[in-house]
Structure formats: structure tokens, C-alpha cells
Design a protein around this nucleic acid. Structure first.
Length: 356
DNA sequence: CACGTAACGGTTGAG
DNA sequence: CACTCAACCGTTACG
């Protein structure tokens, strides 16, 4: 597990098979694209396969999000408590009702739409397993959670643990499943337009940490978590308690394509030290007073060229590319000197620069 | 050569 | 609690 990362792709970049790229890199991909860098150049510069660049950019263009999707888990359950309750009601009202009739009624009554209506077999199973003995009080009945959101809370956050920072007990969760940080109101379906967006990212301070970029030991343990990091740390922009519907909505479609893009990067380019500790303490996970990033956000953005990253964070290691490697082929890209500088300061990948 | 994408081998996490 | 399965991942290779 811990040794699994550190594969090197054809371009010399480090990646973890099966795991998302660090957000720092993802952001840089988008950012460079916004600067007008061609995908193929981005690919070379960041040493990320062009397929991945293509994919990330495509997703960004489509959804406004640069963050990876939710990995693992199952589809959102369609048999939400509410649905079950309704099914039970139907069954009680008409014990002879067929599953397909129940299905139709669920649709007709608006309990479900065609996308989340349970299959007939599911309904049958529900009838068999959960409603078999109607006399028994249904487990759901008492609590009666709001079903729709519950149903969709698939992707709303990933309370990942950070083995490094978490208690040695091995308990996975840094937060309880019901984590306050994002809570139900942020629940988002697994479907894409989701949690992550550039505007959200603005609030992230964690992803730009050098270790994440460097890969190696600092490789971000769980990228999906950043979605929740978003939620957790972002509130400053929209609301204090994180109940920011507006933020959610802006998630779904990104508002501004580029302008704020250039600014968010420096804004988030901070960090580091304890990025994985964001969730470290279940206690402090919500507002995490220690997050100095909030104040930084606005102050240090340098549009386009000056992108002065935090020194400790980004040290422009890779001078755009290796002359010996690409330079002999042709000018890498129609970049102005300024752009080059911007880039070199932006990406700041601490790449081995070993190749050739 | 640049780029889109399917195939592939991998991880993850809800059920 | 081990397992299954379907989601996602990035790389690679192909067109």
C-alpha cells in the first residue's frame, strides 16, 4: 500500500496507478491551458500523459471542475428510505399490488423520477426484505431522513483518513460519516457536475503543497478528499458555516473561465506543511482556525506572469523543459519569455530533471 | 505532430 | 469481515 506509488511514466513524471494526479498538477494543467499553452506542451512540461491532460482539460471545459471524480463506492442508492416508505405504503394500501405497479406509482407520484426509480426487481426485493412483515416498524420510519439528499450524498465528501496523521489505531475515518464539514446540504450526486470547481479550489490551500507535487513520499494519499477539503476550507468565500448553496451552484457550472483562474493558483499555492492534517482532528475539522490561507487568498494573486508562488512551496525546478530533450527538436511552444517565466514559476514541479 | 479516446491495469468504497 | 462490483484513476497505444 504505502509503497505502491512512484511509478514513472514515459515522460518521466511520477504517478500512482489507479490514483488521481495531485490537484496541484491538475490545476496547473488547466492553468497552463488558460495561458494558451497547448495540451501537448502541458503534457511535456508537467510530464503528464497527454491523454490525461486531454481528459482533465476536457472535463474542466465541460464541468468547470478540475478535481477527480469520486472513486469507489457504489451508485447512489435508489431505495432511499423515502422510497421504501412509499413502497411500503403502496403495499399496505394494496397488498396485492405488483412491483411494476409500485414502480409506476413511484413515478406517477413523483417519489422518483425515471432516473432513480428502482427496478422492478429492486422493488420486489424491498418488498421481500424490508416490507415482508409490515407489522414490524420500519427502521427508516423513525428517523425519516430527508431522502433525496441522502440518496445523493454519494459524492459529497470523502472522509478519508490520512494514515500519517491519523491515530495509529488504524481507524480510517478522520471524520464520522456524517461529517459536519460538508454535511448533507452539500450532497452531490456522483454525476459529474459536482463538488469541485475552480471557484472552490480557490479555497483550497492544501493541494498545492510541494509534497503533493513531488509525488514521492508526499503523494497525496487521497485525492478525492480534496473535494471535501474544498468544502471544508472554502466557506470563507461564501459562507462561514459552509452552508453555501451558491457555492454549490457555482460548482455545477463554472462562472468565469479564465480570469480568476490565473488568480486562484497563486492563491492556493500555499501551504504545505500540514495539508493532510486538514482533517486530522475530528474536532478542528470544521473551521480549522489555523488556516492562514484564508487571508492570503486575495492578496497574492499575480495575474499571468508574476505568479509568485510561495517560495517554499514552489521552487521552479524545471525550467520549462530540458533543452537537451526538447530543445533540439523544436521550440516547445509559442511562448513569450514572460510566459516561460510564468510557467517556470507556476508549475514548480520538483522534478528530478534527471533525464538526458 | 497534435489530439481524442479505447484498452488496460490499477485503487477505492458502498453494499 | 471478506467479498463483489462498479465507479474512477492515469498511462499507453492507436487512429
Amino acid at each position: 500500500m504505502e509503497q505502491t506509488y512512484g511509478e514513472v511514466n514515459q515522460l518521466g513524471g511520477v504517478f500512482v496507478n489507479g490514483r488521481p494526479l495531485p490537484n496541484a498538477i491538475r490545476i496547473r494543467i488547466v492553468e497552463l491551458a488558460q495561458l494558451g499553452i497547448r495540451p501537448c506542451d502541458i503534457s511535456r512540461q508537467l510530464r503528464v500523459s497527454h491523454g490525461c491532460v486531454s481528459k482533465i482539460l476536457a472535463r474542466y471545459n465541460e464541468t468547470g471542475s478540475i478535481l477527480p471524480g469520486a472513486i469507489g463506492g457504489s451508485k447512489p442508492r435508489v431505495t432511499t428510505p423515502n422510497v421504501v416508505k412509499n413502497i411500503r405504503d403502496y403495499k399496505q394500501g394494496d397488498p396485492g399490488i405488483f412491483a411494476w405497479e409500485i414502480r409506476d406509482r413511484l413515478l406517477a407520484d413523483g417519489v422518483c423520477d425515471k432516473y432513480n426509480v428502482p427496478s422492478v426487481s429492486s422493488i420486489s426485493r424491498i418488498l421481500r426484505n424490508k416490507i415482508g412483515n409490515l407489522s414490524q416498524p420500519n427502521q427508516y420510519e423513525s428517523s425519516k431522513q430527508p431522502p433525496p439528499q441522502h440518496a445523493l450524498s454519494y459524492n459529497h465528501m470523502y472522509p478519508y483518513s490520512y494514515p500519517n496523521t491519523m491515530s495509529p489505531s488504524g481507524t480510517k475515518m478522520g471524520n464520522p460519516p456524517g461529517v459536519p464539514v460538508t454535511a448533507g446540504h452539500v450532497s452531490i450526486s456522483r454525476a459529474w457536475p459536482s463538488v469541485h470547481t475552480v471557484s472552490n479550489i480557490l479555497g483550497i490551500r492544501a493541494f498545492m503543497d510541494p509534497t503533493a507535487i513531488a509525488g514521492a513520499e508526499g503523494y497525496p494519499p487521497k485525492m478525492e478528499d480534496w473535494a471535501s477539503v474544498n468544502r471544508t476550507t472554502f466557506p470563507s468565500a461564501h459562507s462561514v458555516n459552509g452552508i453555501d448553496k451558491s457555492a454549490i451552484e457555482t460548482d455545477i457550472k463554472y462562472p468565469q473561465p479564465s480570469s480568476n483562474l490565473s488568480s486562484y493558483v497563486p492563491a492556493c499555492a500555499y501551504s504545505a506543511s500540514n495539508q493532510y492534517g486538514v482533517y486530522g482532528g475530528p474536532a478542528g475539522s470544521y473551521v480549522t482556525p489555523g488556516h492562514h490561507w484564508q487571508s492570503q487568498t486575495t492578496s497574492l494573486s499575480h495575474p499571468s506572469s508574476g505568479v509568485t508562488m510561495h517560495g517554499g512551496d514552489i521552487h521552479s525546478a524545471m525550467a520549462f523543459k530540458h533543452p537537451s530533450r526538447d530543445g533540439d527538436r523544436k521550440p516547445p511552444s509559442p511562448l513569450s519569455k514572460q510566459q516561460h517565466e510564468a510557467l517556470s514559476s507556476v508549475h514548480g514541479l520538483t522534478l528530478p530533471t534527471s533525464a538526458s
